[in-house]
Design a protein around this nucleic acid. Sequence first.
DNA 1: CGCACTTGGTTTCCAACGGAAACCTGAAAC
DNA 2: GTTTCAGGTTTCCGTTGGAAACCAAGTGCG
Lengths: 133, 133
Amino acid sequence: MKFDYDIYSDRCPTRAVLDRIADKWALLILDRLALGPTRFNVLRRDITGISQKVLSQTLKLLERDGLISRTAYPTVPVTVEYALTPLGENLTEAVAAFAHWAESNMEAIRKAQLAYDRRERRSDAGVTPKASR
Amino acid sequence: MKFDYDIYSDRCPTRAVLDRIADKWALLILDRLALGPTRFNVLRRDITGISQKVLSQTLKLLERDGLISRTAYPTVPVTVEYALTPLGENLTEAVAAFAHWAESNMEAIRKAQLAYDRRERRSDAGVTPKASR
DNA sequence: CGCACTTGGTTTCCAACGGAAACCTGAAAC
DNA sequence: GTTTCAGGTTTCCGTTGGAAACCAAGTGCG
């Protein structure tokens, strides 16, 4: 079976999907949910730096795309648990490979950045590196 | 060998890397470059919808991180070719898995979206789906 | 009773980012 | 001299993101 989808075309619906999953926060959420169903505030505390607004938005969109499920338990206060759906689990391997590539290659990247910045300084002007803003 | 990096922590340098590669445009560029070295305007034309500004910015950042290389040939007009570095090639498998997961799972996602939107309509209010803005 | 505290959000405000389009540099070709 | 090409940068403006405040419902505490 072949797909007539083309990720390089902005008219292709796959682009919208890429837009959703190729996102720092979505990736971290999916990766974290791979460890098991998790409540809203636990996600918020574990994924340092995410704001409530963005967490809530991202969860809603991931739910709409069928990657995660949301279950509210009528405890007090209400408990809301998010979990991967089978479709979402389907993606976890790729997500994990991706998210943890950074951990494995951090040294090489740091070296590359230092070399680049040294070169830039020699050749004057200089792209403003994000870190120095 | 263990890494004391933690992708969930916003103080971890890996978060900055994730920030860079977990980006729609960066992914598409890396995936496209996996096919071979490519000139600026070819990238711009192939990756539909990217703006020159963002393409140029993203290329610069990917170069700084050592994932791609930039080579200018003194032709007329000047030709600039971008290519994956070994470090970048190292990442292409994960990128491809990721970028093309969308193509393989498009049907399931579309179904999930339709089901979600139908449920939303029944239960009134409704999260505004991106498509209807 | 009245206040604090919990979860799971939404709202508000402002700064940062992204996209569209114009502009720029340099050289050749018309 | 002005049109064309590559490869960008700049400008302008609308959308998005983060920080923090606010909110509802219910329980515990004094």
